[in-house]
Design a protein around this nucleic acid. Structure first.
Lengths: 212, 212
DNA sequence: GATTACATGTAACATGTTACATGATTAC
DNA sequence: GTAATCATGTAACATGTTACATGTAATC
């Protein structure tokens, strides 16, 4: 009996549980709109995963045709429902952040100022990409016209999380831009003093350490 | 000529460039201390990657012995230096966040309140894990005793980023906990009103949309 | 009618993790 | 001297991405 925790499969299972029938394309759209920012996966992967769900008896597929071309739609089964709730009873994986631009900042000594600027700009763009979707989605929910309006209490939490993340990215990008701008003009001692002041200021925001 | 962008290899290359010689164990320690939170990889992967670097001529290895047991240490080559600067000239990948606990919140309708609590707690723990390391590292840099003290201007930016991320996780966890606590006691209408108020409040913090 | 964007996949490949094995060192 | 932890890997496996192929609908 293998361990089976593959999160992406369960993510799709969760979508299937929200509605009667989904075509694969609808699934990819939903992932693109909602889940992309906290569970990003290539759209081509969906096609494979959802077929595997059928293989395990967690979903049923149905063929329709658009012209001569087949379209497959999926529905969750009772066993799929059970698999979903079983998974929700397992402990969640830790949150993981992957920030290649920050890795480049980390290696700033080997990069040009221009390259550092590009890296910081990418972080800002990453924040903006989230905000762009957030503007559309929040407007729909506030107007009461969103596709899953009955989920608004849940989606508000997700919106809060992603917006906070995005704003943090943008604010950091602004601060980093400023700091790096000052580097070439400053003597090493000055630069170090400024860096230590920044560390101390950030550190002052830390809460008391939790014991245990 | 293959595309070759494998970021993890370049991350290691960057470490090798910072110092003369590293044993594999020292590399894993460095990754654990510094890079884990923005470029997380299994430690076992390091052993493979660094051997591949040697295979491409980007690093040299040297064997020493500890008792009867071999230890391998690595040094960057001139070609490795060039590979590193070439990589730094390529465009950075976007930032990616993977938050399984948030996926579980997204599927709140199928979970128990207890399960939601566990998910939120995981997010708080993820923030705390960063802060725990941040306390140690910031203290060392402020005292001037950190292993790479001359990098303090760079590390201050990384510290700022990760601390902001961690604080955001903790603050969101507190808000989410509160919101979910109120769910069972509230009528659906009340719940929806509260959710919309939350969305509006978050939305009010958005900056003006960037055009283009 | 040609071009572009939408839609539906597959195959080959790259990357990454888990489980395991085992020697050395430290704590008791 | 024994257990726990540190250190050094390997092999098997799981997951995920890129590149491609091709049909359909919308646009001009």
């Amino acid at each position: 009996m293998p361990k089976r925790t593959a999160t992406t499969a369960n993510a799709i299972l969760g979508l299937l549980a929200l509605r009667d029938e989904w075509s694969t394309w609808e699934l990819t759209q939903q992932l693109r709109r909602n889940m992309r920012f906290f569970w990003p996966r290539a759209e081509s992967q969906i096609y494979g995963e959802v077929k595997a769900l059928v293989g395990r008896g967690w979903a049923r597929s149905r063929q329709t045709f658009v012209g001569r071309r087949a379209r497959t739609s999926y529905t969750i089964t009772a066993r799929g429902q059970r698999a979903l709730t079983d998974w929700l009873a397992t402990p969640p994986k830790p949150t993981a952040l992957e920030c290649e631009p920050l890795l480049r900042i980390f290696l700033a000594d080997f990069a040009t100022p221009e390259q550092l600027h590009v890296a910081i700009d990418q972080v800002r763009a990453d924040g903006d990409a989230i905000l762009d979707v957030g503007r559309v989605v929040s407007t729909e929910y506030l107007a009461g016209t969103a596709p899953f309006q009955d989920q608004v209490h849940v989606r508000a939490l997700v919106f809060d999380f992603l917006s906070s993340h995005a704003l943090m990215l943008r604010e950091w990008a602004d601060r980093a831009e400023q700091a790096i701008h000052a580097w070439p003009r400053a003597a090493p001692r000055t630069r170090e003093r400024a860096a230590k002041a920044s560390i101390a200021a950030v550190r002052a925001q830390y809460p008391e350490p939790h014991h245990m």
